[in-house]
Nucleic acid binder design. Structure first.
Length: 256
DNA sequence: TGATGTTTATCTGGGA
DNA sequence: TCCCAGATAAACATCA
């Protein structure tokens, strides 16, 4: 049976929803998160149908990103300035496409009000931190004083060097409900904690012409968490370098 | 100014 | 038949 090429659909509309296409794009990226422009590119590269009427489907896609709780907007890293945020999949959304179907989902992924509010607060805090980072870099090219350990943010270890102490928010720990899994805070560190072995989430099944999406190994955090881990490790390293007199860096994080 | 993001409304089609 | 997911359109806000 010949393997269909990635352009198998030709000018035909692929049988995938925008949610599926977006999830595919995100899954295809090494960090499991992409800016909007890269999501567009992924789709137009693989599906010629979407090379026309771009205004139309891109509007729909943006609507889906905002409307569906399964997509999480992650503020850009301060050292990666640019337009727009990164988009990733919510941890609970990995098994969104149960039974491997990339078509209509059984049930829309919806966060509860409190969960959504907390997640938004945490992400807003991250954006705030990034702004503080940039503000400080603008005045003096020195990295931020401390990176979060217990939550996304902790009080600076060197308060006198804090960029904008008043603006660095204390972040409430975000707790999300885990189906069939113990509760876990949706913070970088909490997500990085070793988890009890569990079944890999079900990524979308191979798409015609696309490589099979990798299944996560047991006990392995989602790849975008690893990316966040690397991000924080880099900043920690920079912070340690800049604040050597009073900053004691934590043990090195395992970088994937 | 254009790209990005949010929100609302309406319509279509699949599934229970 | 009804409910709901998904598609589409449009208006508006925000930001680099």
């Amino acid at each position: 049976m010949p393997r269909p090429s990635r352009d198998s659909y030709g000018d035909q509309k692929p049988p995938y929803s925008y949610i599926s296409l977006t999830a595919m794009a995100i899954w295809s990226s090494p960090e499991r998160m992409l800016p909007l422009s890269e999501i567009y590119r992924f789709i137009t590269d693989r599906f010629p149908y979407y090379r026309r009427n771009t205004q139309r489907w891109q509007n729909s896609l943006r609507h889906n990103l905002s409307f569906n709780d399964c997509f999480v907007k992650v503020p850009r890293r301060p050292d990666r300035p640019g337009k727009g945020a990164y988009w990733t999949l919510h941890p609970q959304a990995f098994d969104m496409f149960e039974n491997g179907s990339l078509l209509r989902r059984r049930k829309r992924f919806k966060l509860q009000k409190g969960e959504k509010d907390n997640l938004n607060a945490e992400l807003a805090a991250l954006a705030s931190f990034n702004r503080a980072f940039l503000a400080r870099q603008a005045s003096a090219p020195v990295p931020p004083p401390a990176m979060p350990t217990a939550s996304l943010y902790t009080p600076p270890l060197c308060p006198q060097l804090s960029p904008e102490p008043a603006e660095l928010p204390e972040v409430a720990t975000v707790t999300i409900l885990q189906r069939e899994r113990p509760r876990r805070a949706f913070t970088i560190d909490a997500l990085l904690e070793p988890d009890s072995p569990r079944l890999s989430p079900s990524p979308p099944q191979p798409v015609l012409g696309l490589p099979a999406l990798p299944r996560l190994e047991l006990s392995m955090p989602p790849p975008y968490v690893l990316a966040a881990q690397r991000y924080h490790a880099e900043l920690l390293q920079a912070a340690a370098h800049a604040l050597r007199p009073c900053y004691l860096p934590p043990p090195p994080l395992p970088v994937a």
